[in-house]
Design a protein around this nucleic acid. Structure first.
Length: 259
DNA sequence: GGTAATGTTAGACT
DNA sequence: TAGTCTAACATTAC
């Protein structure tokens, strides 16, 4: 689920459900998800406050609660659920917040890669984690400057949240497919036009994904993403995609259309 | 039962 | 020293 477009969906979900209501009870169900905070501190800090607004940076969601922010990172399997009846509480509920109106917001995730924490200063938090600029917010100059400092293969650089934040495994493959560049190409071997193309496709793909509510079953026919889990065929010529491991992650690509 | 899954990061390496 | 890369993390589904 959670690359940049999915986190954007979670933001919209939270904004439309859980804002401007007093939090009456907070329960950490599993301390493993806590980042730089104890269960007692998180619970005591949030109880009595309200969520006022939120902002997303890369794959992080920050929710303002007055002079403090709650940060969510959704790992591989995290999501949010707002509900009224406790019997609807998802199995892998890791953090449960109850509001004055009787509704609950659960932070859910099966694999324990999710994280929740507190910060008083979002900018400082991002700096401390060395998170790069949000990929939807940068212009080409910044993109180019940030990339040129790096070496190595292009896919790893696109995935590196210290370089720029938001792309994950699936969308990085999508960008490289649509730009016709092999995931194993070295950044140094790419020319300015190719970087410009990557930059533009990143924006276009992420904005399209957000518009389509990150539901890749409804992505345009020429997108790679819906194919990686299903037929694993290139949408252009219906030939089988190649599949290789890069730094432990599976990269899908079309050997005919990516050079 | 083996394998892979949308992510991050400690530690090894360069 | 700082950037790069791999393995490990935890759990479930196929």
């Amino acid at each position: 689920m959670p690359e940049l477009p999915e986190v954007e969906m979670f933001k919209k979900y939270l904004d439309s459900t859980a804002l401007n209501q007093k939090i009456v009870k907070v329960e950490v169900k599993n301390v493993r998800i806590l980042k730089n905070v104890s269960a007692a501190e998180l619970e005591m800090t949030l109880e009595g406050r309200q969520f006022l607004y939120s902002m997303r940076h890369g794959k992080y969601l920050f929710v303002n609660a007055g002079d403090i922010w709650v940060l969510f990172h959704f790992g591989m399997t995290g999501w949010l659920k707002y509900f009224n009846d406790l019997t609807d509480d998802p199995v892998h509920d890791r953090l449960l917040m109850k509001f004055e109106n009787g509704y609950y917001l659960a932070f859910v995730g099966q694999r324990m890669f999710e994280r929740v924490g507190l910060t008083r200063d979002v900018t400082q938090f991002l700096q401390s984690q060395k998170i790069g600029p949000d990929v939807l917010q940068i212009d080409f100059e910044t993109f180019n400057r940030v990339l040129r400092k790096r070496r190595g293969i292009i896919k790893n650089i696109l995935l590196n949240q210290h370089v720029m934040a938001g792309l994950g495994n699936m969308y990085a493959d999508e960008v490289l497919f649509q730009t016709g560049i092999l995931p194993t190409r070295k950044l140094q071997d790419l020319n300015e036009n190719q970087l410009q193309d990557i930059f533009e496709k990143i924006k276009e793909i992420l904005q399209t994904a957000i518009k389509l509510q990150a539901d890749y079953d409804h992505f345009p026919d020429f997108y790679l993403t819906p194919n990686r889990n299903k037929k694993q065929l290139c949408p252009k010529d219906k030939e089988p995609l190649n599949q290789i491991k890069i730094s432990g992650r599976t990269a899908y690509f079309c050997p005919q259309h990516q050079k």
